[in-house]
Nucleic acid binder design. Structure first.
Lengths: 228, 228
DNA sequence: GGCCTGGTACTCTGTTTCGAGTATTCGGAC
DNA sequence: GTCCGAATACTCGAAACAGAGTACCAGGCC
């Protein structure tokens, strides 16, 4: 994605708006907002104006007119160029066709999970489940509002996607919390013991210097496949 | 997340490493890599050194010693502070318990999907499905390697999570591609017609000025609930 | 008539992030 | 013995980002 001249996805949203008709940046921001797209694309003014400027530098958009009503701040209306149109279609095709690694915060959290004691982690995950259920209900509500307004499914597809991802996450998280509570996840018994020993005042560093002494049988957490 | 003094998740990974024992930045990077954590946390040198410096500024870590072996570049070993330990646990708890909006590229793509013609989008989504299947197979392979090494499930849980998300995405994407091809997604017939008219050389702007003329029945795409 | 809220249209500035680049050493192949 | 590539341990500057702040105006309310 770095090879793109302007890499911020907001730039794509800007191009998409300008495909419809020329607009000034502030108008782009309100258009995106009114369509609920600020839910799927991070939009803030600082980035918006920077991105438009950068698009202009790369000749993907051109300023068309600068007007001023009364003594309001001036507005610069931008128009998309042929190159901009091509870039827009090409980029969109890439987004749809090619998965990219996005580093989600839960993935990061899970990868460091052993730092906290197992029951604490289970509790936190259960807390997350509740919040996820709330979010899913909120999406359902907004989808049904959209439906009442007669909006085609086509225009809220990204909400359906988000809902699907949240449901999958909820499913994973509740299953994991249960597995931890029941010691069904491999390594959990050692993980639990490790934190019990730490609770008696022995530091992690000490335990890792002589795991067998502190963890006995469970020391294999520190030495995978020591029986080979 | 912005209220955290150091917001980059890499900072959390750094703190987690230093909980184990004091290390120098480069050692942190190799530790994370060897544990496969660079899959779940974006790691690059520029950020790493910036983040460590920032942690030091906020007294979450302190430099312990600066040594130099032979004429290699010097290494500065950092140690975690009590405040750092607290921050680390607190942050991790937050990551696990609280979902955050992360803007995925597919969600962005879906929200702008109507810009491309329906059959093109279906094709692109099918292409994505293939790539997703490949990725899932790659994760399965790495999970089975980990299993052969006797690594506890606990330490690869983030890969299982990622797999679950990819499977959910695959499911969504294949279903959507089919629905588009079969015109089962509300709005698709109008979407198709719109692109057919555009293919005859009429611009989007023109169509949107007089949708009924160009789209007839399907003009309701532009005027949701016009029959009220 | 004056005040106050909310909308319009940006601007500014301190952080953060990125990743290519640098300089050194070590181990193995030939 | 020496040459090459990989590993070690960072540094640097340009670009991107965040989001608070500014300056103006219209309309409603008391």
């Amino acid at each position: 994605m770095t090879r793109r001249r302007v890499s911020n996805p907001l730039a794509l949203a800007v191009l998409c708006c300008l495909v419809e008709r020329p607009m000034h940046p502030y108008e782009i921001s309100t258009t995106l907002r009114s369509r609920g797209k600020e839910q799927s694309i991070k939009l803030n003014y600082g980035s918006l104006y920077a991105v438009v400027e950068s698009l202009q530098k790369h000749a993907l958009v051109v300023p068309r007119e600068t007007s001023r009503e009364g003594r309001r701040p001036q507005r610069t209306v931008y128009e998309i160029t042929e190159a901009g149109r091509t870039e827009c279609e090409d980029w969109l095709a890439e987004l749809l066709s090619t998965p990219v690694r996005d580093f989600t915060s839960l993935e990061a959290g899970l990868s460091m999970m052993p730092l906290l004691p197992p029951d604490e982690v289970a509790r936190l995950l259960e807390e997350r489940s509740d919040k996820l259920r709330t979010e899913i209900r909120a999406i359902d509500a907004s989808l049904s509002v959209a439906d009442d307004l007669g909006l085609a499914e086509l225009f809220v597809i990204e909400s359906r996607f988000r809902r699907a991802m949240l449901v999958a996450e909820l499913d994973f998280v509740t299953t994991l919390a249960t597995a931890i509570r029941k010691d069904e996840l491999t390594g959990t018994s050692g993980w639990r013991l490790l934190h019990e020993v730490q609770a008696t005042g022995v530091s992690f560093e000490e335990i890792s210097r002589d795991p067998v002494r502190y963890l006995g049988e469970e020391a294999r957490l520190f030495q995978p496949n020591s029986q080979d």
